[in-house]
């Protein structure tokens, strides 16, 4: 399975594992089953910008490299599938 940091900017995916994520990340919506879109990644700056629940979230690139996502991303207009 790819990691969030491996997506291309604009690509969407579903988070498939949240065991390693801190509680705060989950409170912000980063959890198993959430639809996430990578907006921007700047490995040189060490940051990634994602969209989750309609909001932009900046996260450490190292953290983005630990978030496992589904390989088949959805199109932008797909409904959020965070039900589980």
């Amino acid at each position: 399975m790819p990691y969030l940091s491996e997506l291309k900017p604009g690509e969407q995916a579903i988070i498939i594992a949240d065991e390693h994520l801190p509680v705060k990340a989950m409170e912000l919506g980063l959890m198993k089953g959430s639809l996430i879109r990578l907006k921007k990644k700047n490995p040189k700056i060490g940051m990634a910008l994602v969209e989750i629940n309609g909001q932009s979230l900046a996260l450490d690139y190292g953290l983005a490299s630990q978030i496992e996502v589904s390989s088949n991303g959805k199109k932008e207009n797909s409904p959020d599938s965070t039900d589980r």
Binding site: L28, L57, A58, G62
Partner: peptide
């Protein structure tokens, strides 16, 4: 601690 921050419009 890895940065995790909402980016307001």
């Amino acid at each position: 601690t890895p940065l995790l921050m909402l980016m307001p419009d």
